[in-house]
Design a protein around this nucleic acid. Sequence first.
DNA 1: ATAATTTGGAACCAATTGGTACAAAACAAC
DNA 2: GTTGTTTTGTACCAATTGGTTCCAAATTAT
Lengths: 191, 191
Amino acid sequence: MARPREFDVEEAVEGAMQIFWRNGYGATNLPDLLEAMGLSRGSFYKAFGDKRNAYLQALQRYDDTHISGAIALLEGPGEPSGRARILKLFDKALTSQAGELRGCLVCNAMVELGPSDSEVAQMAASICKRMQDAFELALREDQGGEVGASDMTAWRAAAITNVYFGAQAIRKTGQAMPAWPTVLADLIGPA
Amino acid sequence: MARPREFDVEEAVEGAMQIFWRNGYGATNLPDLLEAMGLSRGSFYKAFGDKRNAYLQALQRYDDTHISGAIALLEGPGEPSGRARILKLFDKALTSQAGELRGCLVCNAMVELGPSDSEVAQMAASICKRMQDAFELALREDQGGEVGASDMTAWRAAAITNVYFGAQAIRKTGQAMPAWPTVLADLIGPA
DNA sequence: ATAATTTGGAACCAATTGGTACAAAACAAC
DNA sequence: GTTGTTTTGTACCAATTGGTTCCAAATTAT
């Protein structure tokens, strides 16, 4: 008994994600956001409440698509080893994409909003942790069952996670990315 | 034959650095910036031209103080080994500072302005490179003169640089930092 | 039909944005 | 003290900010 929505919510959130990813939160103004989402002011505020909420949903969508995709890749199969899957992730996520310079929405969110928005900070921290766990799992796969007295795998996974987000930050300057198999050799083992 | 300035330029730039460091560029408005710099609108625009220029100078000051300090620490002496100096840097720069959440101005600059301000991007990229060189130098000190057929030192330094900036990003979510001697063990050698 | 409900869009809002204009004050040289 | 120059604080600016309100048109179920 009511008029149905004319726009697709997922498409709108996707548009929001794209522009927030490219421009950040603060630098995205409402007109641009509306255009990216493909809807009018009225519809936007009815459906999303406010800008911050749209950002939260965009971040959640990034999690559901890109991050979950990355973690799925790490959990394989599809590659012969955990090491190969880690390298594939770095290759996919951190290869030039010449001139794009968007980095990673989670990294951008941590840096821009981490200190001021605890909900964003919490989402980002949780994503970091999930990625770290996935790295650890991939590492463990390669080392069979043996567990030494001092198992460094968890620490190695932490190091890899830090490398990952560091590269996402550095990449935004346009710097070329190094050869990951070599840079990560100490952490994931040599080819 | 003219009225002298009443404010100290260095002090003003220091104030600008502090607030940009804490709030980022876009989220710092002029009134707050002026207050942090301790000067009025008139003086500000006379001496600095505009907000972006003030940011550039603040970033330069961060380079001249914090980054140069970090590199000086890496080049020692003052610690027994290159490894120890790297750990000391991580400890100094990445220890909780509970509740501060400012991260590193260079990391913040890369992420917020890298894609949109090529001058900022260039400064940040140059800083990354200098830090990487300093890491490499510290690493080489520990391994004496011997150079294997495949010298991984430069790659290790790149990995450490990425870990560093990754940690600066992640830290802004309030996450506790891991135990660096363990996390970095594969890259700088065990204790 | 009619009632219910949502749509897109324009009009409007107070507050804030970065930036400019300018006159008065403060100083140095003479 | 006069002149010349620069700094300083304030008043002011147009433009933009995120957000609200309102309404005719559209679409559904009854």
